[in-house]
């Protein structure tokens, strides 16, 4: 049996994958990688939420495998979203540093049943940093098109929003002692997941069709 909160999440991610596939001809490498990321996330969430049925106590190991993969994919997405070469190089180095930190924190936190909160905080910080850099790059090179219909803007906003909430969640979760408060925090986290993947899925809709491409794409 699936977790009741997991089903809407899986549906949203699946919708995102479908929209990404529909728009794949019009999208660039960054959004192709977003589709791959969504597919990987879908598989991870499916396994993580049904692993109890196969006798496993926790699903922490699934996320421990997923995290480095997610770091690589997000870095690759931002590598293609950045226009300046120095920022692309920064994305590569940031990815390497985050992977090293993830590995170290996983080794320190060797128990498969204990959540690697240092690693998760590291990756969240990386994604926030990458999205903030993209925001600053967008400010440096403003284009003529409306920002509100720019898929990259929505993708970056979603990443910034979700992982900022996520980092707060992981920092404060261990400080919460009451179970009711823990449940509330979990619930907020779950709804943030819904919002994040919905915005990512909707950003695919904003990718312009080839016959409607603005000048800079021609």
């Amino acid at each position: 049996m699936l977790n009741p909160y997991a089903l809407p999440l899986l549906i949203i991610i699946a919708l995102g994958v479908m929209l990404g596939m529909v728009k794949r001809k019009n999208s660039d490498k960054a959004f192709h990688t977003v589709v791959v990321l969504l597919v990987v996330t879908f598989i991870t969430e499916l396994i993580a939420n049904s692993i109890h049925n196969f006798g496993f106590k926790t699903n922490v190991t699934v996320y421990k495998i997923f995290d480095p993969l997610q770091v690589i994919l997000f870095s690759y997405i931002f590598y293609h979203l950045y226009q300046f070469r120095k920022l692309k190089i920064f994305a590569v180095y940031a990815c390497i540093v985050a992977l090293i930190l993830l590995t170290i924190s996983t080794i320190i936190n060797i128990s498969p049943n204990v959540n690697n909160s240092i690693g998760v905080t590291t990756k969240c910080a990386l994604y926030i940093l990458l999205s903030l850099i993209k925001f600053s790059e967008m400010l440096q090179t403003p284009s003529e098109e409306n920002i509100v219909v720019n898929p990259t803007f929505w993708f970056c906003s979603a990443v910034f929003f979700f992982f900022s909430v996520n980092i707060m969640f992981w920092i404060t979760f261990n400080q919460i002692s009451e179970s009711a408060a823990k449940n509330t925090a979990r619930l907020i986290h779950v709804y943030c997941n819904y919002i994040f993947y919905s915005i990512v899925a909707l950003s695919f809709l904003l990718i312009p069709s080839k016959n409607k491409l603005p000048d800079r794409y021609e």
Binding site: S157, F161, V165, T172, I176, E178, A181, T184, I188
Partner: peptide, 26 residues
């Protein structure tokens, strides 16, 4: 209870700050 209300207020504050940041960016 106390912790739940703190979480609610904290989450609302974080959401507001983040949305305000995005609006400011636009």
């Amino acid at each position: 209870n106390n912790q739940v209300s703190t979480i609610f207020f904290g989450a609302t504050a974080i959401f507001t700050v983040l949305v305000f940041f995005i609006i400011l960016f636009v």
